[in-house]
């Protein structure tokens, strides 16, 4: 179940504002508003709610993060130096790691106390992930890479609807007609578009992107960040992006700087 945000929430307004800063993307803000208005429920339920999180490794690494509340369509940029724990935070949010203290609730599921099986289901169905190095499977073509999540978890069924959704997403990210291309023949920018389509194909309520622009050249960075924002908002999902790239931070609705609490 996904809950769409209220378009009038302050965070969303902010994100629209940042969009509007770029004249090129004025038309996106209109679309985002349109969709949000179309599907806005009467009461907005946050998709992600965390209390103050604490995570420590035996190596002495320590991460503390202030509470996060995100509604559908909202976006959050996580900033921080290398090694500050941005990736660790994303791992906590998708249930790969468990915090020592604090709670994570995603789409009504208490991830921080859930069983391994429940957390795997959350990763498979509840959150889409985008990585710096794309993490696509070389042996699979573009369409099968997008459809990969359906082959990984029993609760996802690879049917015609899934294929239609994958094709629609590929069209939206500008890869129409490339469904049967080999991943190896694609540019970095194209690969990240495939990865974005894969992250959204299961209609997750939360999209986690770990340095999604880290492997791209500067002109591509902004385009991919905007694409990610546009598509997660169109899907009504909440987006959290970990980045150390200051140039794209203003695109996101809110900013969380890791390490600032210390």
């Amino acid at each position: 179940m996904r809950t769409h945000s209220d378009a009038r929430s302050s965070l969303d307004d902010e994100s629209c504002k940042s969009y509007a800063q770029s004249t090129r993307h004025k038309r996106y803000s209109a679309r985002v508003l349109g969709i949000a208005q179309d599907s806005s429920p009467l009461v907005a339920t946050p998709l992600l709610v965390t209390s103050e999180l604490e995570f420590r490794r035996a190596s002495g690494f320590e991460l503390r993060v202030r509470p996060i509340v995100l509604h559908g369509g909202e976006s959050l940029a996580v900033r921080g130096a290398s090694g500050s724990g941005k990736s660790t935070l994303l791992s906590l949010l998708c249930g790969e790691l468990l915090p020592q203290r604090g709670s994570i609730q995603a789409s009504g599921v208490m991830i921080s106390t859930a069983t391994d099986t429940a957390r795997r289901k959350h990763r498979a169905t509840g959150c889409g992930q985008v990585f710096q190095t794309f993490e696509l499977v070389d042996a699979l073509d573009v369409l099968d890479n997008v459809l990969l999540p359906f082959r990984l978890h029993a609760s996802l069924v690879l049917n015609d609807a899934a294929r239609a959704r994958a094709l629609e997403l590929l069209e939206r990210v500008g890869l129409r007609g490339m469904e049967r291309r080999s991943i190896l023949t694609m540019s970095h920018g194209e690969r990240q578009r495939v990865a974005i389509a894969r992250a959204l194909v299961t209609k997750p309520s939360l999209v986690l992107a770990d340095e999604p622009t880290g492997s791209l050249d500067t002109p591509r960075k902004r385009a991919i960040a905007e694409l990610l924002l546009r598509e997660t908002q169109a899907a009504g999902a909440a987006l959290i992006i970990a980045t150390h790239d200051q140039s794209i931070v203003p695109l996101f609705g809110s900013v969380l700087t890791i390490g600032e609490l210390e």
Partner: peptide, 13 residues
Amino acid sequence: ADELALMRRLGAS
């Protein structure tokens, strides 16, 4: 290994 790790991250048992 990367590919298999990815599958685990995407929720595969």
